[in-house]
Simulated scan of single mutants.
Amino acid sequence: MILKINGVIDLGLIQSDRRPLYEVALKKMEEMIRSGDWPPGYRLPSEAKLSEEFGISRMTLREAMRVLEEENLIVKQQGVGTFVKSRPVIKSGIEELYSVTKAIEREGMTAGTTDFSINVLPANEEEAKRLNIEKDSEIYRVDRVRTANGEPVVYCIDRIPVSILSDGLDSFPESLFGYLEKNFNIRIAYAISDIIPISYHPVASKKLGLGKNHALLLLEQVHYDQNNRAILYSSNFFKPDKFRFYVVRKRV
C-alpha cells in the first residue's frame, strides 16, 4: 500500500527501502496504476513534480518510467504528456500453471464466458496424437470466449477424451480445471506448452473483435494429471494487448 499525505507520496517509504531507487519508484507507480489511483487515460504529473514527490532525481525517474513504458502500462505522446494505458489482464510467469479464470481474477477483474458450446466429435490426427488416443476416438470439444469485466480477451478450444469422463460433460462454471477436479477427481499437474504468435485466425479474430491487422498469441497446451496421463488438449487465442507473459531465466 502506498501512503499518501495530502495527495503526496510518503517519501519515507521510498527513502527507507534498500532496493535501487528506480526500482522502488517503479513498484510504487505500478501500484498506483493497478490500484486505480492512476486510472486508464490518466495524465501523469510532470517529471519535475514526480521527482519531487518521490524524492529522486529526474534521471532515476526516467529509468523507472522507461520500464513502465516497456511493460505497456504508460504511453508518451510527444508534446502532450504521458498517460496510463489500459492495463493487461495478466502479467505472469509462463512457468505458472493456472486457469484463465484464476488469471483474470488475480488482476481484480471479473471472469465470464460467452459463446459456450460442447460437441462430441471424432479426434483428428493431431488431436489423437496430442491426447495419446486412437484417431477417430470420441472427444469432447469445448469452445468458449472468456471475458474480463465483460470484454472478450481469450478464445478457448479444449478437447477431452470421452473415455476419461465416465459421467459425461455438462455445461460448467468458469474454470475447467476446477470442474474436472471437483466432479471427476482429476487434478491437472503440469502442461507442455507451445507459444505461437499468429497474424490472423478467421474464427478467433472474429470472436475477439479483432481485424486482419491485429496479431494474436496462441498458447497450445497438453495438460497431464499426476499419473502422466494426457487429459486436456487446449488451444487458447489471447489478445496480446491484454496478456503479458514472461519467463524467469536462471544462470546455469
Rank of each mutant, 00 (worst) to 15 (best):
F184M: 07
E105D: 00
P202H: 10
K129I: 12
K182L: 06
K250Y: 14
C156M: 13
N6G: 13
S166Y: 10
P152E: 01
A148I: 02
V145W: 02
E181Y: 09
P202C: 07
R58I: 07
R58Y: 00
V89Y: 00
P20Q: 05
F54Q: 08
K239D: 11
K76E: 10
T60W: 00
P240I: 00
P40G: 03
I33N: 05
L11K: 15
S171H: 13
I157H: 04
S166A: 15
M109C: 02
A25T: 14
K28R: 09
L131Q: 04
F54A: 08
S205A: 08
A25L: 01
L131H: 07
H201G: 02
P88E: 07
G55Q: 03
E125W: 12
L180Y: 04
E52I: 07
Y42H: 15
L169K: 09
S175K: 06
I9Q: 06
G36L: 03
Y179S: 04
V248I: 14
L73V: 06
I196T: 14
N236Q: 12
D225A: 12
Q226T: 11
V248Q: 12
L232S: 03
P88G: 11
T101W: 09
I196H: 13
L219S: 14
Y200F: 11
K49S: 10
I157A: 07
S171K: 15
P39W: 03
S163T: 14
S86I: 11
Y22D: 12
V89W: 00
I186G: 03
T110G: 01
E151Q: 08
T113H: 00
P173T: 06
F54S: 10
M65R: 14
V142W: 00
E126R: 07
A191K: 13
T82P: 03
A64K: 00
T82F: 04
S137D: 15
V247G: 06
R159K: 13
K242W: 02
R146M: 15
N228G: 01
K207V: 04
L44V: 04
K239R: 14
D225W: 00
G209R: 03
N228Q: 11
R62M: 12
I118M: 04
S199A: 13
R144N: 05
G79W: 06
E31N: 12
T147I: 00
V154I: 11
E107T: 05
E181T: 10
K242H: 10
P45H: 01
E23P: 08
V145D: 03
D170Q: 15
T114E: 13
R249D: 14
G108V: 02
E151V: 05
E105P: 01
G150I: 02
F184L: 06
H201Q: 11
